[in-house]
Write a protein that binds this DNA or RNA. Sequence first.
DNA 1: TTGCGTGCAAAGGTTTTGCATGGCA
DNA 2: TGCCATGCAAAACCTTTGCACGCAA
Lengths: 148, 148
Amino acid sequence: MKAEYNTRQRAVILDFLKENSAHVSARDILEHLNAMGIKVGVATIYRTLDKLCSIGLVKKFVIDERSGACYQYVRGAECEEHFHLKCVSCGKLIHMDCDFLAEMEKHILDEHGFTVSSGKTVIYGRCAECELGENFVPDSSCCHTHKH
Amino acid sequence: MKAEYNTRQRAVILDFLKENSAHVSARDILEHLNAMGIKVGVATIYRTLDKLCSIGLVKKFVIDERSGACYQYVRGAECEEHFHLKCVSCGKLIHMDCDFLAEMEKHILDEHGFTVSSGKTVIYGRCAECELGENFVPDSSCCHTHKH
DNA sequence: TTGCGTGCAAAGGTTTTGCATGGCA
DNA sequence: TGCCATGCAAAACCTTTGCACGCAA
């Protein structure tokens, strides 16, 4: 087990993630910190995010592969035990904490011989508000080309 | 509506996708065609895949953002309608083709107000073989379909 | 002939890596 | 004082784009 140091950069990055209930990209973090006059290298951001992910404080999402991964602060270890529903439109993260989960896992194990890792799994889709509202973002899995 | 030409490259790419029940990457296609002595540019592959996706013959997945997108030939839109089980140990990809899926989606919609994007969602965990033996052999090219 | 498709290379973006330096414990 | 973390820049990677040429209809 490697020792871990508490550094200024790490604290600053984690703070920013905590402040944001929505997901942020590595670039968002970089720009925010730069805007605050805090100098942090890109590599540090990625390396820190990697560590925060591996200890379970942060979750990584890939919503649109063109614009890179998104990261979001999560409550902690309890999030290892449920699925997460991620709205690809507004970014909202729903913690799917319910009994149905056990049923799902049982089915997948019994019928498909597959042991689900709940905390790792993210179910993508659209939340009620976005499904009804005008908040439309083309689903990248449909190969819509989106130019900037 | 733009006119569409039938070209050699397009036929070759589509053929390769049809031959493969598994997901293939743009790179897989390139290497396969090169190995067969067929010269096709990378740009053509991406442009062709884009078109095949938009007319619904091919589906695009982002399973691991590090290794890029995967493409798969689909009859109809079958891969829109099932989840994928991804073994984090050996990389095997299982297509979860069964009726339980509808039940899952219904529950998630009814109880959580969330519309699942099945084709985009990947459930992570460990397949039976890896769960029993500790054979850790990362190989993302190892895919197969599992029906019941 | 028309104009879509292709090949090539360059460019675009995100993420990783090598190496010397900085800083926590 | 050890070593981990950081910064910088270069590299790696996948993907897109510009442009001239090829080719289907």
